[in-house]
Each structure stands twice: as structure tokens, then as C-alpha cells.
Design a protein around this nucleic acid. Structure first.
Lengths: 165, 165
DNA sequence: TATTGTTATACTCTATAACTATA
DNA sequence: TATAGTTATAGAGTATAACAATA
């Protein structure tokens, strides 16, 4: 083409739009994480669940779904897969027999540690173009967006749209 | 839920990861744009196609797909829909009868103008939490990421996909 | 033989609705 | 009546593969 766009897949006029840049970079980021995590056999959603369980074990599926904005029926599948992979297990909740308390297995804990390492590595790779100061600044700007204004309802309105492969 | 996470849908430990923030914000941004554009009856992909045609009319479907990183078979559907909505039309290319030159209709041009206005409005809304200086800084940081390093291959896994035409 | 566009198909991810078993 | 979990299903959205027309 005669006039090459500065950024692949983004028409030049759109590259001016912060929103389009953010959207495109978000997609590319998600893909990088998903690919790296798939190497150790988990999805981004499973990672999120493992993280949540690592912080507080024994959460019900419902509670997990609320925290991570994952639909209850989707949560079934996620936990099914975690359980099939031997990373988590459902246990009866003696206080409410409707509930299934989800716990990490030992394998789940070590896989979680592995995944965190992968995430740190990918993070370092993706943001290598920025120096320490720039990364800190970017983090601060993104946090502002994630906590204030229309983008602060991150996963809510339509209760879906998490990160995934 | 005793300890609510600072950012909805993001476990606190993950909020430290620039990558997760970027991924989440990208998703939320995309949703906002998609919703706003749906009000005027087009999808984000159609918008991208209209933008590309606005910059250079008469592109072949193949050329459009290369620019926007849209698969040829998907492009068929996108153009079908644009055509059905009266926004674009396929014309024979006298130089190569395999090709269909895609042109905007008058309705397409005015819809494009409308969509650009919508995009500007959404952009202003989403980034209202940041002041002018911060927005400029964010734009610069994101552009760096979009042009350097692993995130610069924005729309495609196949890395060898440069312009040729 | 390669390329452009097309069709038909499959796949991924996720949500919706209806059902069960508890509460 | 309401809630936690499950099942079955459907819908986006997109990609893959085979094919026809043309180069």
C-alpha cells in the first residue's frame, strides 16, 4: 500500500484514538498471556480462579463468580476443568449443603506459583520497551482509569467478557 | 465477601500486573465502543472498514483484509453486511476480474462521519478521568508499546504479514 | 500454479433458560 | 420463595478448508 499505517491493523486516523490503541493493546496482551499460560496447561480464567483461591480458599462457586465476574454456569465449567486437571476440588460445605467449597490441591498451589512466575515473565517481556519510570507512570494512569469513570465498571454491565484465550 | 477487591473483577494481586490491567481495560473499552456504535447500526469491524474506505476507496476485499488483519472469508461477511445496510458496494475491477473494488455509498460516507463523531464522543467520555497532559502521556506510552516490542504485532500472530500491494 | 472471492463448516468462548436440591 | 449449582442449548465471533473463476 502506498501510505503504510504506523501501526499494523490500525488505520492511521484511528491510531489517534486512545480508545482504539487501548482496545488493540488489550487484545494483544490477552493473547500473549493466554499463550504463555497454555504452555503450563491453564487458561486465563483458571489462573484468575487459582489466584482468588490462593488468596482465600474454600470460596463457593457463587462467591468466586461474583469476585471474578464469571457467570455461574461458566464457573461450573471452569471448576470442572480445574478439578479434572487436579488443581482444585469441590468439598461439601457443612453449613449449607447447596454450596460447594472450592479448595486448591497441592498441585493447584504449585501450579499457581508456576503461573505467577509465567505472568511475571510475560509482563516483563511485554513492557520491556518502557523503562522503570514509564512503567510506573503507565501503571498509575491505567489504575486511575480502572478506578474512576466509565471504565471502572470493568467486568460488570454485561456480566461477561473476562480475559480468555 | 469480606475483602472487596479494589478493582471489580480483578483479584488484588493481579491489579499489580500492568498486563492484566491493560487486558481488562482493553476489553471494557472495546465494549463501550461496540455499544455506542451499535446505536447507529454498525459494528466495530464495519467501522474499521468504513474508515479504511474513507481513506482510500475502491480497495479490494483482499487489500482491506490485509490492512485490517481480517480474514478473507470474514471479510466477505463484513462487506455483505455493509452492502445490505447500503453503506458500501462491490464494483467490478476492470483490471482484474477476480477482484471486487469496494466503494462507499453516499449513505456510507455520512454514516462514517456519524461513527467518527460517536468515536470521538466515547473517547472523550472514557478518558475524562485524565486531564489533557495525562492523556497525552498515556497516548505516548501506548504508542511506544504499539510500535516497539512484542505488542507491536497487534492484529496477528503470523509475524510475517507486511504490506505488499 | 497462484490469487480473489465465496461457501460451508467447525471451533472457541460465553451467556440464557430450565431444572434439582437445598434453604 | 429464593439461592447454589448444574445441564443443555444457543449465540457471537472468527477461523479453516475446499472450491470456482480468473490470472
Amino acid at each position: 500500500m502506498g501510505d503504510r499505517p504506523l501501526i499494523a491493523g490500525v488505520p492511521p486516523d484511528l491510531a489517534d484514538h486512545l480508545g482504539f490503541l487501548l482496545s488493540k493493546l488489550g487484545t494483544a496482551t490477552r493473547r500473549h498471556f493466554a499463550e504463555a499460560l497454555s504452555v503450563i496447561g491453564i487458561t486465563a480464567r483458571q489462573f484468575a480462579v487459582l489466584m482468588a483461591l490462593g488468596a482465600r480458599e474454600g470460596l463457593s462457586q457463587h462467591a468466586l463468580g461474583e469476585r471474578l465476574r464469571i457467570d455461574p454456569s461458566s464457573m461450573v465449567t471452569v471448576i470442572d476443568d480445574c478439578e479434572a486437571a487436579g488443581l482444585a476440588e469441590r468439598r461439601p460445605d457443612p453449613k449449607d449443603r447447596r454450596r460447594r467449597a472450592v479448595h486448591l490441591t497441592d498441585a493447584g498451589r504449585s501450579r499457581l506459583a508456576e503461573a505467577q512466575q509465567v505472568a511475571r515473565r510475560v509482563n516483563a517481556e511485554l513492557f520491556a520497551p518502557l523503562d522503570e519510570t514509564q512503567r510506573a507512570h503507565l501503571h498509575q494512569l491505567l489504575t486511575t482509569l480502572a478506578t474512576t469513570g466509565p471504565l471502572s465498571s470493568l467486568g460488570s454491565d454485561p456480566p461477561g467478557h473476562e480475559e480468555s484465550k
